[in-house]
């Protein structure tokens, strides 16, 4: 079932055509990654889905309903954790719910505990490490009532080790809850390891260069990154990106 669809989206800023004829669909429960060179307009795509920008042409729809320029249809996890510094971790993770109406603190506390943040429920964000802050931000997105989560390069500011740990963690959580995720990254390995489908963007003006189905079974094992199939896939995508 198609949850989110973008049809022939076009967006220019003045003379500068950023997105041209971009179409994309995300099915319910699917983990889709968008990968593209930096400056290829990934953030513009997210801002349009989030309703902060309106496309010049084309239709964005969620569950069959047009959401062009409509805010609040998606749940979002940005590159920086963006936690409110005066709120405790618990109060932070319910923020997405709070903006939409209903707050369920019990469920929030339960999820935080499962995510290994149980002892930090009443701490303030600055007491947490970078990785823990990102987990908090992800749980906030997961608890928000919207049907799809947009992740905007969430691990790019973390060090290599934390990053690998976070990927592992994300995949565990994803396999438990199966939320629909649209994930932006410029890291091919990360995209391959995490997603069901990889969408490759072209340089400006951005459009879809190709769509790539990830063949590895779920639940994903950590060691598939060392597999020869994995390397082959990585090569294919790399070639497609640089063509």
């Amino acid at each position: 079932m198609t949850l989110l669809s973008l049809q022939q989206i076009r967006k220019s800023f003045g003379q500068n055509n950023v997105i041209n004829d971009l179409s994309l669909t995300v099915k319910k429960g699917e983990f889709v990654s968008i990968i593209g060179p930096s400056g290829s307009g990934k953030s513009t795509i997210f801002n349009m889905i989030g309703g902060l920008l309106t496309p010049d042409d084309g239709i964005i729809s969620m569950n069959g309903q047009k959401i062009n320029g409509k805010r609040g249809s998606i749940s979002y996890m940005p590159q920086s954790p963006s936690l409110l510094p005066w709120r405790t971790i618990l109060d932070n993770v319910v923020l997405g719910q709070e903006l939409q109406g209903n707050v369920d603190k019990e469920k929030a506390a339960e999820m935080l505990t499962k995510a290994g943040l149980g002892t930090y429920i009443h701490s303030l964000p600055h007491e947490l490490s970078g990785g823990m802050k990102q987990r908090t931000a992800f749980i906030r997105a997961l608890l928000s009532p919207q049907p799809i989560i947009l992740l905007d390069e969430p691990f790019s500011a973390l060090d290599e080790l934390t990053r690998a740990e976070m990927q592992r963690w994300l995949i565990d959580i994803w396999e438990q809850h199966q939320p629909t995720i649209l994930f932006v990254t410029h890291n091919i390995e990360e995209a391959l390891y995490l997603s069901d489908k990889i969408v490759i963007l072209s340089n400006r003006p951005a459009s879809i260069k190709g769509s790539y189905h990830v063949p590895f079974p779920r639940p994903r094992q950590g060691d598939i990154m060392l597999d020869s199939d994995f390397l082959q896939c990585k090569k294919d995508i790399y070639r497609a990106l640089t063509e």
Partner: peptide, 24 residues
């Protein structure tokens, strides 16, 4: 700006943006 962007992407109205973010 990053906090503001998050709030807007998550669907905060301008009233919520003010009371929950800008004022505190």
């Amino acid at each position: 700006q990053d906090l503001k962007t998050y709030m807007m992407m998550a669907g905060a109205s301008s009233k919520q943006l003010f009371w929950k973010l800008e004022l505190p």
